[in-house]
Amino acid sequence: MSLPVEDLAAQALSLPPEDRALLLERLIASFEPKSPAQEAWFKLAQRRREDVRGGRVQMVPGDEALARVRARLA
């Protein structure tokens, strides 16, 4: 028996942030066909996320990152 969409949405929104993110990733992936390029990008994103979580890299604020890119292009 399937749940009405509103009930399902309410349950999903009550999940912790990490679980909601995982659910979102799975829902988005269900709309896109699997391709080698998509799989490679996904694996890269997962590695980068783990690098941040593991403290191996440090995040840079968006404005600062854009300023660095603009300086390199100038």
Results as ranks from 00 to 15, higher is better:
26 R>S: 14
23 L>V: 11
21 A>Y: 05
32 E>P: 00
59 M>Y: 05
74 A>L: 03
15 L>N: 08
19 D>I: 04
25 E>C: 09
70 R>D: 10
19 D>K: 04
53 R>Q: 07
74 A>Q: 12
3 L>K: 15
60 V>Q: 02
9 A>L: 14
51 D>Y: 01
49 R>H: 06
57 V>T: 10
47 R>E: 15
62 G>C: 01
37 A>P: 00
47 R>A: 15
56 R>P: 00
27 L>F: 13
8 L>H: 04
39 E>T: 06
57 V>Q: 08
42 F>W: 07
72 R>D: 01
68 R>Q: 15
74 A>E: 10
32 E>T: 09
47 R>D: 15
61 P>G: 13
13 L>W: 03
45 A>C: 05
47 R>C: 09
17 P>G: 05
19 D>Y: 08
72 R>H: 04
5 V>R: 08
27 L>H: 12
3 L>F: 03
49 R>M: 09
24 L>D: 04
44 L>K: 11
66 L>I: 08
58 Q>F: 06
5 V>H: 06
32 E>M: 14
48 R>V: 10
32 E>S: 10
24 L>E: 04
12 A>R: 11
55 G>T: 04
31 F>S: 04
4 P>F: 02
51 D>R: 06
20 R>C: 03
45 A>E: 15
22 L>C: 03
14 S>V: 07
46 Q>G: 06
8 L>S: 13
15 L>Q: 14
49 R>G: 06
59 M>I: 05
55 G>W: 07
9 A>G: 04
70 R>T: 10
65 A>F: 08
67 A>I: 05
6 E>A: 14
31 F>W: 09
8 L>C: 04
74 A>M: 04
24 L>R: 08
35 S>H: 04
10 A>N: 02
74 A>V: 04
59 M>C: 08
71 A>H: 03
9 A>M: 12
27 L>V: 15
2 S>R: 04
73 L>F: 07
40 A>P: 00
29 A>R: 14
72 R>L: 06
58 Q>T: 05
62 G>Q: 00
57 V>M: 07
41 W>P: 01
61 P>H: 06
21 A>Q: 11
42 F>R: 14
22 L>Y: 00
32 E>K: 10
9 A>T: 08
69 V>M: 09
13 L>I: 00
49 R>Q: 13
16 P>Q: 05
36 P>E: 05
29 A>Q: 13
51 D>G: 05
2 S>C: 10
48 R>A: 07
37 A>F: 05
7 D>S: 13
38 Q>F: 01
15 L>W: 13
1 M>E: 14
55 G>C: 06
63 D>G: 05
43 K>Y: 10
6 E>D: 15
62 G>F: 06
24 L>Y: 07
18 E>F: 01
3 L>W: 08
13 L>H: 11
42 F>D: 05
66 L>C: 02
52 V>A: 14
50 E>D: 15
62 G>R: 03
3 L>Y: 01
60 V>A: 09
60 V>S: 01
36 P>T: 03
48 R>Q: 10
48 R>L: 15
69 V>D: 06
57 V>E: 14
74 A>R: 15
40 A>K: 11
21 A>G: 05
68 R>T: 01
25 E>Y: 09
69 V>G: 01
27 L>W: 02
3 L>I: 01
61 P>Q: 11
34 K>A: 04
